[in-house]
């Protein structure tokens, strides 16, 4: 009897020592031109703050490296590369990795994902800011500087052999970045967390009473569905995320490399995949591909997807449905 009491006392004492993890939240607004949310279950505010610093730090670091609009003292980044006028430029490893990934995906998607589309994209960016449509001739001219073969990559340098070319990583940078941030957190022992960077969500572990829940917006308002994920990334590309109305027509930010105009095949595509960078690449690619070609692409990766057509029709892979409640 005494022994039992002693054991119970110890159990109570120990239980009191390890408090149940609580949910903490942090928001960053200074990376990738969007709102980033970091949510994690930690045993203390201090632990969370430490993790949050790591996440923010990594996202900031990669944001600066992949930034094509600004240069930063002390580092050579995408903006520097684009402005190098064709000279061989030594760049950070992450940029090399991202570029190689972009080249790889260009092949896989038959050209539908093109990181060399920068000159066309910057024209569209300008036009969206001014609310005007781009000049057709200018578009075509710039399209001539989007040949991905004109990127020469070595172990630590990149050369844009076409000086009129510029790179734009909008299709894959966020996915890559949150994926790296997640890796760092896991290396530091954090198990249950999620990072959402403007529509790129990466999750690890789960919440005390279930998996992470990601709501997918209906382009016309409300939610189409909610998916439950654990250790997976969810990325949605949609025509409702960044767009501008010109003469009553919507012009969104995902430009089809073939037409040089905003892709019109789908209203939104959602991809679920264990790899965050992959999920990002897939969602942008699938947004510009037919259903069949998209499905083929998915087969090779371990990914699931949902497409919403222009008339609101929803198509899902069976694996995607498994994630829905």
């Amino acid at each position: 009897m005494k022994k039992l009491l002693a054991v119970l006392a110890c159990a109570v004492f120990l239980a009191g020592c390890s408090p149940a993890p609580k949910r903490y939240n942090a928001v960053y607004t200074d990376v990738f031109d969007t709102v980033t949310e970091f949510t994690a279950y930690c045993s203390s505010q201090e632990e969370f703050d430490g993790m949050s610093e790591r996440v923010h730090g990594e996202l900031l670091r990669l944001h600066e490296i992949f930034d094509i609009y600004n240069e930063y003292p002390g580092i050579v980044n995408a903006c520097s590369l684009n402005g190098a006028g064709g000279a061989e430029t030594e760049v950070p490893d992450d940029l090399i990795e991202l570029i190689n990934m972009g080249i790889d995906w260009h092949k896989k998607t038959g050209g539908q994902l093109n990181i060399a589309l920068g000159s066309v994209l910057s024209l569209w960016h300008e036009c969206r800011e001014n609310g005007t449509l781009p000049d057709e001739n200018e578009l075509l001219k710039r399209a001539g500087h989007c040949d991905i073969e004109k990127i020469a990559v070595t172990e630590n340098s990149v050369t844009l052999t076409d000086p009129g070319m510029s790179l734009d990583f909008g299709a894959i940078a966020k996915g890559y970045a949150v994926g790296r941030a997640a890796e760092i957190l896991k290396e530091n022992g954090l198990e249950d967390f999620a990072i959402s960077c403007g529509g790129n969500v990466v999750t690890s572990g789960k919440k005390p009473y279930g998996k992470w829940e990601i709501g997918i917006e209906n382009p016309d308002g409300g939610l189409i569905t909610t998916v439950s994920v654990s250790d997976e990334a969810v990325v949605t590309s949609g025509d409702y995320q960044r767009f501008v109305m010109i003469d009553g027509k919507r012009y969104h930010h995902i430009i089809d490399p073939k037409t040089l105009y905003p892709a019109e095949k789908w209203r939104s595509v959602t991809v679920i995949c264990p790899d965050s960078a992959l999920a990002d690449a897939l969602s942008t690619s699938l947004f510009c591909l037919d259903l069949e070609d998209g499905m083929k692409l998915l087969e090779d990766c371990k990914a699931e997807a949902m497409w919403v057509s222009q008339d609101g029709e929803v198509t899902k892979t069976p694996g995607f449905e498994d994630h829905e409640k």
């Binding site: 949510t39 959402s196 969500v201 919440k207 829940e213 990601i214 939610l223 959602t270």
Partner: peptide
């Protein structure tokens, strides 16, 4: 009550 953790 619990809506989704994130919406995209």
């Amino acid at each position: 009550g619990q809506g989704p953790d994130f919406t995209q």
